[in-house]
Amino acid sequence: MSIKNNFNYIKNEISSDGQLLENTLKLEILYKKYKYIIWTILVVVIFGGISYQLYSYYNEKKIQKYSALYSELLQDTSNTSLQAELKTGNPKLYDLFTLQQALKDGNISKFMEIQDSKSAIISSISSYYIGSFERDISVLKNVNKYTLGDLSKLQQAYILINENKINDAKVILGEISKDSNISELASLLSHYMITKQ
């Protein structure tokens, strides 16, 4: 009985070893058939990973460089060489610097310089200030509705009230949502219109 068990055990082991050998041979045939594709994919994945790491490293160094340049420029705002370097290297950061200086000085020409900025927020802020300073409703209408839209409408209504265009001002104030943070100011301006009539 034990010889029979031993024989069955040996038979099962040989069978499993045979299956292992058979699977190994199939794998080897598959590798030989597709080895160029496998190596190409492996090389592409390794090259892609290295390229991504190098690109990330380069971007991080670039960000650090222009952040340091921006900080230095904030210390010495009249340094034109730093301004030129920042403008060519990182135009959006330069636009932010120009916006900061325009807000500080109230200089409308600086606002006009960045009105066509690639940054939607900076462009909207500069358009808002240009429209407000010049009391130009057409410029205020072009302010991005997601950044300063309601504030722009409030300013438009105020300009129209001063021009005695009360009905137009009511229409614009009606466009300001009740959920807006500026809705209370719009309500106060509506009450102010009553005194102007």
Rank of each mutant, 00 (worst) to 15 (best):
I3Q: 03
K4Q: 11
N6C: 11
N8V: 15
N8I: 12
K11A: 11
N12R: 14
E13C: 15
I14P: 14
G18P: 04
N23I: 08
N23H: 05
N23T: 09
T24D: 13
K26C: 13
E28D: 10
I29N: 13
L30W: 08
K33L: 06
K35C: 14
K35Y: 12
Y36K: 14
I37W: 11
I37Q: 13
I41Y: 05
V43M: 14
V43D: 06
V44T: 11
I46R: 03
F47M: 15
F47T: 12
G48R: 05
G49I: 00
S51F: 07
L54C: 06
L54T: 08
S56I: 11
N59C: 06
K62I: 13
Q64S: 15
S67H: 07
Y70T: 04
S71A: 11
E72Y: 06
L73A: 00
L74E: 02
Q75H: 10
T80W: 13
Q83G: 14
L86M: 04
K87E: 07
N90M: 15
L99Y: 01
Q101L: 09
L103F: 01
G106L: 01
I108E: 01
I108R: 00
K110N: 07
K110R: 14
F111S: 00
M112C: 03
S119N: 07
A120Y: 07
S123Y: 00
S124P: 04
S127Q: 07
Y129N: 00
I130C: 01
F133D: 01
S138F: 04
S138Q: 14
V139W: 02
K141E: 12
N142A: 12
N142G: 15
K145N: 15
Y146W: 10
L148I: 03
D150P: 04
L154A: 02
Y158S: 13
I159D: 00
I161H: 00
I161E: 00
A169N: 05
I172T: 02
G174C: 05
I176A: 02
S183C: 05
E184F: 11
L185C: 11
A186I: 04
A186T: 03
S187W: 13
L188A: 09
M193L: 01
M193Y: 01
K196S: 10
